[in-house]
Structure formats: C-alpha cells, structure tokens
Design a protein around this nucleic acid. Structure first.
Length: 425
RNA sequence: GGAGAGGUGGCUGAGUGGUCGAAAGCGGCCGCCUGCUAAGCGGUUGUAGGAGUUUAAAUCCCUACCCCGGGUUCGAAUCCCGGCCUCUCCGCCA
C-alpha cells in the first residue's frame, strides 16, 4: 500500500511512477480530493468528541455536588447525535480511500525501465551459456515417462488436469532438490528455515496484498475462508505482522519450502506440456526483512542466491530485469531467473526476485527500531524463489540427459539421492 | 465437537460506570552517586491519526487505541451481544 502522505507531499512523483507502470495517473487527483474531504470530516468529528469529553467530568462534578446537570446533559445528548451522524461520514471516507489505495501497485524504482514484457532486459552471464548437444535432446516429459519419474495420466486421474503424480525416483528427486536447496540457503547463505501453514487467513492474504491481484489464482476453502498458499511469500510476510522489531533484529532472512497452489485461471492451455505449468508445485522461497538503505543490495544478493542453486546443479541460466509494467503488483524492482530447457527448447522461469520496499510492511504494519526508543520505521521486504521445483527438475533432466536415455546426477545432488550417479530405469 | 476459565502498556499484574492512557513491580532510557563486572537515589518511559507552528525537527494541542466488531449510556478497560485467540478438562484423531 502506498503512503497517503507521500501522495499528499509528492503527487507528481507518484503519478509518474504509476504511469511508468502503465497505470492511469489520474487516480492521484482523485485520492487528493478524497483525502482532503476525509480530513475535513475527521477534524469536525474530533472537535465534537473533544467537547463531549470536556462535558463528562463537569456532569460528574455537578451531580456529585447536588447541582442541576440537566443543561449539560441536554448538550451532551445533542453532541451524541451529531457524533453518530459524522462517524458514518468518516467511516465512508476511510473505506473509500482504503479501497482505492489498495488497488494501487508499488512505485517502480528509478532504475527500472518503463514498458511491458517486450521491454525486459536480458543479462546473460557468459560462463553459463547453454551447451550444445551431440544428439537430439528429449523433452522432460519423455524422460519422466521413460524413466518412470512422473505419472502424468494418473495425476490427472486423481485430481484433474494440471496435477501430477511423482513416482519412485521422481518423487525422491523432488524431495532431494527441496532438501538440497534448503541446506544450501541455511548453511551457506545464512537463512533461517521456516515451515509455515499451507493455508492462509483472509487477513494474512490482505496484508501481503495478494488478495488484490492474486485472488482469482488462489484455491480457497469457503467454509473456513482459508486460502491455499500460492507461494510462501504471503505466509512469511505475516510472520511479523503488527510487530515492531527490536533493535538488532534486522536483517531477517527466512527460507521456507511450501507447496504452491495456483488455479492458473488465465493461462489454461498455455505452456502446459509436462511440468511447465501445473496447479500444485513445490517451491523453496527466500525472504528478507531489510534496512531500507540496503534493500537494493539485498535484492542483488538474493538473485545471486537463486542463481547459486542453478550453478551448483550445472544448469545454464540467464537473469531478466523486468520492466515497470511487467512487475508483480507489490514489487518496486524485479529480476527473473530463467534456466534453459534444451529438450523443450525454451527458457523456463524458475525464480522471481522482488524488492517490495515498504509496500507490504505498511500494509502489514511491520516496523522496526534502529535504536532503543527510536521512532519505528518500515523495513523493506524482499522475496525471491530459490527456486521453483518442477521446472528445475525438468531442466535438470533435459540438461543432464545422456544419449542412452539415462540422466547424470550432478555431484552436489548425489548425497540426497543415496549416492546415485545416474537416474536409470 | 462438548464444558469451563481467560485475553489490560515491552513483561508481570491491579483496576466492575465519570477524576483511567490506565496503580504497582520488572525491564528500558536519562542523570546523580559509587572505583568495580553490582547496588542505591531521582526523573523518565506506548502507538497511530489529525490540527497548528516551523526552513525543518522537537515541544505543545486534539482524537483514537485496555483482543476485534457492534450495542447500552450524557459518559465504557469496566455493562450487554457477536467474533477471534489462549489455557484446562472431556471426546475424537494423524
């Protein structure tokens, strides 16, 4: 959520930021107008309350000393009615403003280029160029089937299209990758591991602002009004909701594995072959609560930490700097990491790293103190996949497949697969 | 799922209709004292919104907040209703 005071103080800056994302900047004027009216109403109401508060002790004293309080009581009754009336007005103003503010995405940072998907900038590290194959590499769905790693048909039988059943070594490979990544991030990158609930309350999903744009994507249990996590991010945002973090607490680094459920409402039929886009997938998520002044660095680090997974597994990747109009709702700056799937012949997005600045912190009322007694400030919240699994598993199989149909296991992963050097039937 | 108890400031914990933003203690901060990893003494100590002042900040002023939301009342931490959460017992269960 954007700060109404920022909008008040620097409307042009906000307007420019929104327009950079391709949003209509005119909302700024509407907000300013609404805000002015809201404050006028609020002041009027508060003045009435002040008078009523002054009347209270007078009435008590008059009554105690046996005097006639009827005039005071009459006035107080009058004020009571006036307060009731104006309270509705203020409530209305508050709600209208909040509704509008909730719909506004975060402002892009200075360094983010304007434009949409076409304006993405590709940063390609030379040492991780895709390697040529001496034979025709197979797509992962063929490898999965021939090695018995994934049973696509039975997955659909159990839960419908877009759900998969990992079997045997496939299930173990999934588990191995999760463990490997969690260990890497906790032991090498200094993250604290969390295992949060996989369903979230409406309150939580609102604080993380996923409710706004993500709602149609989320599976939802209407009986208990709980949402299946679409990513661990909203769960971790809410860990410190409504808290003031004490001096020394920052930076906080959390890593969590969760399954992720997405209806993929708008994307049915697109890139659905194999493991590219499924309704339930596993993901290891990196998350940081950072000092505002160092959050840019933190984003760079987190992106590198995502890449470290791919490097350790010998997978080619590239980093995409996302343009303003293509960023996630809460992001102010975003990198995507893509890894090459030689069999499918495509780059797969396996990570998205965002600096959400103070956008989520404000919404979730998460603050920190620099020094004991210092004024609370909003930390910057960042998230990065580290990384998403089914696509990782897919590119791993496609990249390390051999001409004989087996798949070579990267050395770093072998301890997690009982020492296996090779996946074979 | 059934029965009971309870949710007060960073923590412990008093407070059952007005003088309560809330006693007391602990902790924190500031100062004094003291030569010893301490104790003592004094003071201070929440958050948010708004108005106004100001170059700006601080101070000052108003409002709100004693789990959340309604209600009763001239007036609610205190009474009533609903919700959420915690604890205990029973039931059920991985």
């Amino acid at each position: 959520m954007l700060d109404i005071r920022l909008i008040r103080a620097e409307p042009e800056k906000v307007r420019a930021g929104l327009e950079k994302r391709g949003e209509n900047g005119a909302v700024v004027d509407e907000l300013l107008r609404m805000d002015e009216e809201r404050r006028a109403r609020l002041t009027e109401l508060e003045n009435l309350k002040a008078e009523q508060n002054r009347l209270g002790p007078q009435i008590a004293q008059t009554k105690k000393s046996g005097g006639d309080a009827s005039a005071l009581l009459a006035r107080s009754t009058e004020i009571k009615a006036a307060i009731r009336e104006r309270e509705d007005g203020v409530r209305e103003s508050d709600a209208a403003q909040e509704t509008l503010l909730l719909k506004l995405p975060n402002l892009p940072q200075q360094s983010v280029q304007p434009g949409g998907e076409d304006a993405a900038v590709i940063l390609r590290p030379a040492s991780y160029e895709p390697k040529p194959f001496a034979f025709e590499p197979k797509p992962h769905w063929d490898i999965c089937t021939s090695l018995g790693l994934v049973d696509f048909e039975r997955g659909s039988k159990i839960s419908g299209a877009g759900f998969v059943l990992y079997t045997g070594l496939g299930a173990r490979l999934e588990r191995a990758l999760i463990s490997f990544m969690l260990d890497l991030h906790t032991e090498t990158h200094g993250y604290t591991e969390l295992s949060p609930p996989f369903v979230l309350s409406r309150e939580s999903i609102t604080a993380s602002s996923h409710i706004v744009k993500f709602a149609p994507e989320m599976y939802h249990d209407s009986e208990s009004d709980l949402f299946f996590v679409p990513t661990a991010e909203p769960a971790i945002v809410n860990v410190h909701r409504d808290e003031i973090l004490e001096p020394g607490a920052l930076p906080i680094k959390y890593v969590a594995y969760t399954p992720c459920w997405r209806r993929e409402a708008g994307a049915a039929g697109r890139d659905t072959r194999g493991l590219q886009r499924i309704h339930q997938f596993d993901k290891v998520e990196l998350f940081r609560y950072a000092f505002p002044e160092t959050s840019d660095e933190a984003l760079e680090e987190m992106t590198r930490e995502g890449c470290a997974v791919l490097e350790a597994l010998g997978l080619p990747y590239r980093i995409i700097k996302i343009a303003a109009g293509d960023m996630s709702f809460q992001g102010a700056m975003q990198y995507d990491i893509e890894t090459w799937a030689p069999g499918t012949g495509k780059w797969f997005e396996v990570s998205s790293a965002s600096n959400c600045t103070d956008f989520q912190a404000r919404r979730g009322n998460i603050r920190f103190r620099r020094e004991p007694g210092a004024k609370p400030e909003f930390p910057h919240l960042l998230n990065a996949s580290g990384v998403a699994l089914p696509r990782l598993l897919a590119t791993l199989l496609e990249t390390h497949q051999q001409e004989d149909g087996t798949v070579l296991v990267p050395e770093r992963l072998r301890p997690y697969l009982g020492g296996r050097e090779r996946l074979e039937r």
